[in-house]
């Protein structure tokens, strides 16, 4: 069969089996853009309080009073992970507070790309806080490329320096409890945030505050207090309501044994 840039002749370039995902993307994008527009126009948007984020400033204040540093870990994944990007975004806000309070900040990272992004974000935060002279390139440091070498380095730092505040925001794996328990043993106040359900129990057991799932992604918008960013969060809420309604419809249809066509709309391809 002759082949073109579009593939074998007769084959469709478009994946019709993914049309359900396309509909979801369009509805979701529309909801976010609509709520962002409303936010820009000044419509009041209610956001529930997230205690973990409210506690960040207080935790940095505690570090300032104790004269000890703040440790921030933006996860251990590469920069192409959305969790890491969320962590880096929160780092900017934390760095701004540490700059204002003139509190030492230490950010160990596992990947060089995260190092570059972290350094840029922290530098901008110090400039924004009006303390560019306090910025040191080595605030953000590459410590190790291997998962447990990284953990050993950070745990060693925690036990030797005993930072007053540890903030873990991003993608964490088997090292989550190793880090959080060591921080707990060192007497640090700890705030964690991850979207990985399997690591959440560990953080909840060992940390003072934990951001669960979507709260991690909402953090940058929440901390910025910018209406344009908060519009996106309301768009998310709209989608959640839509999903709840769709689940209820599904339950009813399954109960009446007539859900075959309905369920086929949600098949993953």
């Amino acid at each position: 069969m002759p082949e073109s840039v579009f593939g074998q002749e007769g084959e469709s370039l478009f994946r019709y089996d993914r049309i359900n995902a396309l509909v979801a993307v369009v509805v979701f994008s529309f909801a976010i853009l609509l709520f962002t527009k409303w936010a820009k126009e000044g419509k009041p948007l209610f956001l529930r309080k997230i205690p973990g984020l409210e506690a960040i400033e207080e935790a940095v204040g505690r570090a300032t009073e104790m004269g000890r540093p703040v440790l921030f870990i933006p996860g251990i994944a590469e920069l192409d992970e959305i969790d890491t990007i969320a962590g880096i975004s929160i780092l900017g806000r934390v760095a701004q507070i540490t700059a204002q309070y003139e509190t030492p900040l230490y950010v160990p990272v596992r990947y060089p790309l995260v190092l570059a992004a972290g350094q840029e974000v922290v530098e901008q935060a110090y400039i924004k806080a009006g303390k560019p002279e306090l910025y040191d390139k080595d605030i953000v440091r590459y410590v190790a490329g291997e998962q447990f070498s990284f953990t050993a380095t950070v745990n060693g730092y925690m036990m030797r320096v005993r930072p007053a505040t540890n903030i873990y925001m991003g993608a964490f794996f088997a090292e989550s409890l190793l880090l959080a328990e060591t921080g707990n043993a060192a007497g640090s106040i700890q705030i964690a945030g991850t979207a990985r359900p399997e690591q959440l129990p560990f953080f909840i057991a060992a940390c003072d505050y934990t951001l669960m799932g979507e709260e991690l992604y909402a953090a940058s918008a929440y901390l910025s207090h910018e209406p344009i960013m908060m519009g996106g969060l309301k768009g998310q809420d709209f989608m959640k309501i839509l999903i709840i309604i769709l689940i209820i419809i599904g339950i009813v249809l399954v109960l009446f044994d007539s859900a075959e066509i309905y369920l086929s709309w949600f098949e993953e391809n």
């Binding site: 976010i32 959305i82 359900p197 799932g213 991690l216 969060l233 999903i243």
Partner: peptide, 15 residues
């Protein structure tokens, strides 16, 4: 949690 996180990740990606 997974549904919330997936929506959060998608919203952040879109932003």
């Amino acid at each position: 949690i997974i549904i919330g996180a997936a929506l959060g990740a998608a919203a952040m990606s879109l932003r």
